[in-house]
Nucleic acid binder design. Structure first.
Length: 1003
RNA sequence: GCCCGGGUGGCGGAAUUGGUAGACGCAGCAGACUCAAAAUCUGCCGUUCGCAAGGAUGUGCUGGUUCGAUUCCAGUCCCGGGCACCA
C-alpha cells in the first residue's frame, strides 16, 4: 500500500462534504474562536500560488483550535463588486454579473482543491442583493446619524433636530461648516431645504462637493494610480480635476477613537504605526493674520489668512506664507501685477496629481501673490506665496513657513531668494533647517531666551488673549470618499427631491442594481447609471442617486454577516453577534493597512454606538501575510540586426533576415557575452552552421552583419528549476518551431532532434519578480495539487518561510516536503505488508522524540511560526525513522499533531489506526480528536554538552552536569586540554558561566 | 518625498530573552541498490589557507556598546509594500 494522495484526498474531501464536517453551529457549549481571512476579490485570472498563503495559515490555525476544543468559525466569501469586472465588461461586452459569477465558481473549485475547512453554508458575496441590501441599510443608518462630540458617540439625527429646536447649535459645533452658528429661533425659521443642508453638515454619511480625476478622452473618472504624470495611464490622455457631488463618511469624527482603539487590539506595532500616521493627529494652533493687499480692486471686507501650525513657538521666524493653490483666498488677494504669474502657476498645478505634488522635492515650484501678511507681534510684512506642496485638504490649506526650522521651507526660501531669519542661534548652521524643539529662542521678541518646547504654550496663550489664535488638534486623515462614478457597485438608496436627499424606506431595500449593456459615463461625468432615465426616475417622484458605493463598502462589515448569513430580518442577529463577537484571528496583507482596516474599524464603532453590536473593535488579533513572488525565467535570443542602410542596399535583405531561424543560447554563453569574453557574432556564425537560412544571411551580409541579444521571459511551465524543456517550448508556439538552441555544454539542437535524447541542458536566467501573467511566472495551485497533492502543497507553502514575509515561489523545492509525507506514511504503512504498527511499549528515546515534537509544534503553531513547525515534523520523522519506530503509542498522537497541516493523510491514517485497533478511538474523525498532551517528564536531561569559548570563540565542547555550579565548572573547564593550550600557562582573566547555555574563558 | 517592512551559503530559510551562525529543505558532489531508470538509502557540502591536525574569515555596508552581537545603538546603501477611486 503506497501513499496514493490523489485517491486519499478525493475520498476525504468528499466524505467531509457529505458529512457536513465543517458546518459550524451558533449554539455550542464549547468556547468560540473566530478565524477570518481577508475577503478575496474574485479576479478573472483565478488564484495563483501566492494567494492561498494566508488561507492555509488560517486553515491550519482553525483546525488546530478545533483540536484544542473550540467551536471555530472559519468562513469564506467574495468581495465581488469592483472595478476590474467593469473594465473587463468594457473590453469584452460581458456583463460583470456573468463574469463575476464565473470567477467565483472557479475560486470555489480552487479553494476546495486545497482542502480548506470553510463552512460554505455561510458564504457571502457583496454583489448579491441579499447581501447588499444590508450594506445599503447600514449606509442609511450612517446617513441618519451624527457624531456627538460630548458623548463621543454616534447618535440619531432626530435627536439632533430636537437639540436644534431647543438651543440651536451653540453646543454642537458643526463639523461640515465651522462658521455655521444659529439659534433655536433661527432653526425654526429655516425652510426645509436649509434645514436639510445644515443636517448634511452633521451626518456621518453625507454628500458634498469633491474633486475627481476626470479624463475627457476616456469619458471616465480615473483612480490615482491610473494617472501618471498628469495623463491617463491608458492612452496618455489629459486628466483634469473636476468638482462633483460626492458621498463621504465622516471618519474624521472617529479619529480619536480609532487611535485609542489601537491600544486594545493585537496588531503589529508597524501596522499600528501606519494607522497612527494615517490618522496623523497633531496638536498646534490656528493663527489668523491680517493681510496687506496691493491692488486696485476694492474689497468688501478686510481679508485675513488663517494658518495651522504645530510650532507656534517659531512665529518670529516666519519669513513667508504658503497657500495651497486651490485656497479660496488666492483669487481675492492676488495683486494685479502678479495675476499673470499666479494664473500660469494654477494652470500647471491643475495637471499635477496629489502624489506628484507631495513627492517632488527636487523641483521647487511656487508663485508670489503680491499680498503680505502682518506678523501680529512685530508688525513685519510677510510675503504670501502659493505652492503645490501645500494641500488644500490639510489643516487650513495654508502654512506659515519657517525656513530655519523646516527643510521644505528652507529649500523654498533658498530657491526663491527669500531672506531667512534665524531664531535659534547656533542651532541653525545656514546650510539646512533644524527642526529641533530644544534650542533657545533668539530674535523672538517676548519669548526670547526661552526653550522652544516651552514657548509653544506661551505663544498660544498670548494669541488667545489677543483673540487671533487658538489651540487646535488637527488630523491629517480626511473624510472618506464614499462614491464612485461606476456601475459595478452598490446603488445608493437615496432619492433627490427638490435638491434634498431622501433615504429610501427600509422596506424598499434592496435597491437592486439595474441591468446595463454599456458602461460609459453619464452626461456630466457621472457613473453609467446616469444613462438610465427609467431607472433614475423614482416611482414616488424624484431622481435617484447615480453614483455607486466604493469597494470597501461591502468589506467593511462582512465579518458580521458570516455570523448569521441567511437572516433576512436583520443584518446580523444580536444573539449571534454576541456569541461570536470579535474576530479572534484575522489574516491578510499589509496592503489593507490603512484602507479597509480603518473603514471596517469605523463601521464597527458606529454600529456599536447605535446599539447593534456589543464590541467596537472588529479584529482582536491581526497577522499580516507576506506575498509570494514569482520566479521568472529568461531565455536569450540572438538575432541579426539590420541598420537602415542595409535594408535598401541589397534587395530582399530584409525578407531574408526575417526568415532567419531564431537562436537561443544557454545562460553561461549569455554571461560570457555580457562579460565581453565571447563575441556575439562569432556565436551567431557557430550556431548558424545548423541553419541553411542563416548561412545565406551570413553570406549576403558578410562583414556587415550585426547581432543583438534579447532577454525574454519564458513560461515557467516549460522550465524545471532553471533547466528549459526545449521540446515543450518548441511545440508551444510557431515562432519557436524552427529555433536553434545552443545548450550549456556546447551542443546545438535544431528542429527534429529529440531533446530528451541529447545529453545536455539549456539553462535559463532567473529573477524574482511580482507574480503576473505578463511575466509568464504564474504558477497555478491546481497544477501543484494535481502533481503533489493538497497536503504537500499546504505544507510546502508554510515551509517556504515565515507567513509575514515575502518570498519567491520555487516549484522545485516542493519535492522535499512531498518526500517527507511519504516518509511519514512509511512509518505506518509498508508498501507490501500494509499497516506495520506494533503495540509494543515505547522506549524513553522514542517518547522523547514525540514529546519534543509536540512541544515545538504546539508552540510554533500558537505563535504562527508554521515554517519551523514543518521543520520540526521533518526532524521528528527523521528521528523516528532512525529509531525504526512503528509503535502505536508514538504514532497515534503524531497523526493528530499533523492533522491541521495535512488533514487528508492524517484522516486516512487515523482511520487505519481505528480499523486496526481493538479499542475505540475517542473521535470518529481526526478533525475532532484531542490535541496530544505534552509531558515535560520525557524531556528532562541531567547533563549538557556545553560549548567552551575562548574570548567568545567556541574552541571545545564538554559534557557537564546541569547541577554544576560556577566553582565546579571553572575547575572542570580549566583542566581541559584545549583550554590549557589557549591559556598557555597564564591564568584566565575571567570565566563566564551561563547555566544551561555556555562557558566563556577570557584570557 | 513621507510612512512601514526586509537584506544570513548556489537557493528558501533556522538561531523564541545578547550565549555553539547556517537547523530543516532544495540544488550540487561522491557512493550503495538496479541490466537500466525511477524510488530509496549513506556520506560530503559558507569562503579561504592546510596532506592533516588546525587556523583565518564570515549574517548588506561603516562605526559603537559588551567577556560575547544575525540579535542592542548610531549612520549609510539596496530591495519590497502603502500614500486616500486597484482590491
Amino acid at each position: 500500500m503506497e501513499y496514493n494522495f490523489r485517491d486519499i484526498e478525493k475520498k476525504w474531501q468528499q466524505y467531509w462534504k457529505e458529512s457536513n464536517a465543517y458546518k459550524v453551529s451558533n449554539n455550542s457549549t464549547k468556547p468560540k474562536f473566530y478565524v477570518l481571512d481577508m475577503f478575496p476579490y474574485p479576479s478573472g485570472a483565478g488564484l495563483h500560488v501566492g494567494h492561498p498563503l494566508g488561507y492555509i495559515a488560517s486553515d491550519i490555525y482553525a483546525r488546530f483550535k478545533r483540536l484544542k476544543g473550540f467551536n471555530v468559525l472559519h468562513p469564506m466569501g467574495f468581495d465581488s463588486f469592483g472595478l476590474p469586472a467593469e473594465q473587463y465588461a468594457m473590453e469584452t461586452g460581458q456583463h460583470p454579473a456573468v463574469t463575476t459569477e464565473k470567477n467565483i465558481r472557479r475560486y470555489h473549485e480552487q479553494l476546495d482543491n486545497i482542502g480548506f475547512c470553510y463552512d460554505w453554508s455561510r458564504e457571502v458575496k457583496t454583489s448579491d442583493p441579499s447581501y447588499y441590501k444590508w450594506t445599503q441599510w447600514i449606509f442609511l443608518q450612517l446617513f441618519d446619524t451624527w457624531y456627538n462630540r460630548h458623548s463621543q458617540k454616534a447618535e440619531r439625527i432626530p435627536n439632533l433636530v430636537s437639540i436644534f429646536e431647543q438651543e440651536g447649535n451653540a453646543n454642537h459645533y458643526c463639523p461640515g461648516n465651522e462658521r455655521l452658528i444659529f439659534t433655536a429661533q433661527d432653526w425654526i425659521n429655516y425652510d426645509e431645504k436649509s434645514k436639510e443642508d445644515i443636517l448634511m453638515h452633521y451626518r456621518i454619511a453625507y454628500s458634498a462637493f469633491g474633486e475627481v480625476n476626470w479624463c475627457e478622452a476616456l469619458g471616465t473618472v480615473l483612480a490615482n494610480d491610473e494617472v501618471v504624470n498628469g495623463v491617463s495611464e491608458r492612452g496618455g490622455h489629459p486628466v483634469v480635476k473636476k468638482k462633483m457631488r460626492q458621498w463621504y463618511l465622516r471618519i474624521t469624527e472617529y479619529a480619536d477613537r480609532l487611535l485609542q482603539g489601537l491600544e486594545q487590539v493585537d496588531f503589529s506595532e508597524s501596522m499600528k504605526d501606519m494607522q497612527r500616521n494615517w490618522i496623523g493627529k497633531s496638536q498646534g494652533a490656528e493663527i489668523t493674520f491680517h493681510l496687506t493687499i496691493k491692488q486696485q480692486k476694492e474689497l468688501t471686507d478686510e481679508p485675513t489668512l488663517t494658518v495651522y501650525t504645530t510650532r507656534p513657538d517659531t512665529i518670529f521666524g516666519v519669513d513667508f506664507m504658503v497657500l495651497a493653490p486651490e485656497h479660496e483666498l488666492v483669487a481675492k488677494i492676488t495683486s494685479d501685477e502678479q495675476k499673470a504669474e499666479i494664473d500660469k502657476y494654477l494652470e500647471y498645478v491643475k495637471s499635477r496629481s496629489e502624489r506628484e505634488r507631495l513627492a517632488e522635492v527636487k523641483q521647487i515650484t511656487g508663485a508670489f501673490t503680491g499680498a503680505y501678511a502682518i506678523n501680529p507681534f512685530n508688525g513685519r510684512e510677510i510675503p504670501v506665496w502659493i505652492s503645490e506642496y501645500v494641500l488644500a485638504g490639510y489643516g487650513t490649506g495654508a502654512i506659515m513657513a519657517v525656513p530655519c526650522g523646516d527643510q521644505r521651507d528652507y529649500a523654498f526660501a533658498k530657491y526663491f531668494n527669500i531672506p531667512i531669519t534665524n531664531i535659534i542661534g547656533d542651532a541653525y548652521n545656514g546650510d539646512e533647517a533644524n527642526p529641533t524643539k530644544d534650542a533657545i529662542l533668539q530674535n523672538s521678541g517676548f519669548i526670547d531666551g526661552m526653550v522652544m518646547r516651552n514657548a509653544i504654550g506661551v505663544v498660544i496663550d498670548e494669541l488667545e488673549k489677543m483673540g487671533i489664535g487658538k489651540r487646535k488638534v488637527n488630523y491629517k486623515m480626511r473624510d472618506a470618499g464614499f462614491s464612485r462614478q461606476r456601475y459595478w457597485g452598490e446603488p445608493f438608496p437615496i432619492v433627490y427631491k427638490g435638491g434634498i436627499a431622501f433615504p429610501l424606506n427600509e422596506n424598499q431595500l434592496p435597491l437592486e442594481l439595474p441591468y446595463v449593456d454599456t458602461y460609459s459615463a453619464g452626461p456630466e461625468g457621472e457613473g453609467p447609471l446616469a444613462n438610465l432615465a427609467d431607472w433614475i426616475a423614482a416611482p414616488g417622484g424624484g431622481t435617484r442617486e447615480t453614483n455607486t458605493m466604493p469597494g470597501y463598502a461591502g468589506s467593511s462589515w462582512y465579518f458580521l454577516r458570516y455570523m448569521d448569513p441567511n437572516n433576512d430580518k436583520v443584518f446580523v442577529d444580536r444573539k449571534a453577534a454576541d456569541y461570536w463577537g470579535q474576530v479572534d484571528l484575522y489574516i491578510g496583507g499589509t496592503e489593507h493597512a490603512v484602507g479597509h482596516l480603518l473603514y471596517s474599524r469605523m463601521w464597527t464603532k458606529a454600529l456599536y454606538d447605535l446599539g447593534f453590536i456589543c464590541f467596537d473593535e472588529p479584529y482582536k488579533k491581526l497577522v499580516n501575510q507576506g506575498m509570494i513572488q514569482g520566479a521568472s525565467r529568461f531565455i536569450y535570443r540572438i538575432t541579426p540586426n539590420l541598420s537602415g542602410e542595409q535594408q535598401f542596399e541589397t534587395p530582399g535583405t530584409t525578407n531574408k533576415v526575417l526568415e532567419a531561424h531564431p537562436l537561443y543560447i544557454s545562460k553561461s554563453y549569455r554571461d560570457k557575452i555580457v562579460a565581453g569574453e565571447i563575441n556575439i557574432k562569432d556565436l551567431f556564425y557557430k550556431i548558424s552552421a545548423f541553419s541553411k537560412n542563416n548561412l545565406e544571411i551570413i553570406e549576403l551580409l558578410g562583414e556587415r552583419l550585426e547581432c543583438k541579444l534579447n532577454e525574454l521571459h519564458v513560461d515557467v511551465s516549460f522550465v524545471d528549476g532553471v533547466e528549459l524543456h526545449v521540446d515543450s517550448l518548441r511545440n508551444s508556439r510557431p515562432e519557436y518551431e524552427n529555433a536553434l538552441f545552443l545548450l550549456e555544454d556546447g551542443k546545438v539542437i535544431s528542429q527534429g532532434v529529440d531533446f530528451d535524447e541529447v545529453n545536455d541542458k539549456y539553462i535559463c536566467g532567473a529573477e524574482t519578480e511580482k507574480m503576473s501573467k505578463s511575466k509568464y511566472n504564474v504558477v497555478n495551485p491546481d497544477e501543484i495539487v494535481e502533481r503533489f497533492g493538497a497536503d504537500t502543497f499546504r505544507m510546502y507553502e508554510m515551509f517556504l518561510g515565515p507567513v509575514e514575509q515575502s518570498k519567491p515561489w520555487d516549484t522545485k523545492g516542493i519535492e522535499g516536503v512531498h518526500r517527507f509525507l511519504r516518509k511519514f506514511w512509511r512509518l505506518y504503512v509498508d508498501e507490501l505488508k500494509g499497516l506495520i504498527l506494533t503495540n509494543d511499549a515505547a522506549t524513553p528515546a522514542e517518547l522523547k522524540v514525540l514529546h519534543r515534537a509536540i512541544k515545538k509544534i504546539e508552540d510554533d503553531t500558537e505563535r504562527f511560526s508554521f515554517n519551523t513547525a514543518v521543520s520540526a515534523f521533518m526532524v521528528c520523522v527523521n528521528e523516528l525513522n532512525d529509531l525504526k519506530c512503528h509503535k502505536r503509542e508514538v504514532l497515534e498522537p503524531l497523526v493528530i499533531l499533523l492533522a491541521p497541516y495535512a488533514p487528508h493523510i492524517s484522516e486516512e491514517l487515523y482511520q487505519l489506526l481505528q480499523a486496526s485497533s481493538t479499542e475505540k478511538l475517542e473521535a470518529s474523525s481526526v478533525l475532532d480528536a484531542a490535541f496530544p498532551k505534552y509531558e515535560e517528564k520525557y524531556l528532562v536531561e541531567s547533563s549538557k554538552e556545553y560549548p567552551i569559548s575562548i574570548n567568545g570563540k567556541v574552541r571545545a565542547n564538554m559534557n557537564i552536569s546541569l547541577d554544576a555550579m560556577q566553582p565546579e565548572v571553572e575547575q572542570i573547564v580549566l583542566q581541559n586540554e584545549i583550554v590549557q593550550k589557549w591559556l598557555d600557562g597564564k591564568p584566565p582573566k575571567k570565566i563566564i558561566f551561563v547555566k544551561g547555555k555556555m562557558i566563556n574563558v577570557v584570557i
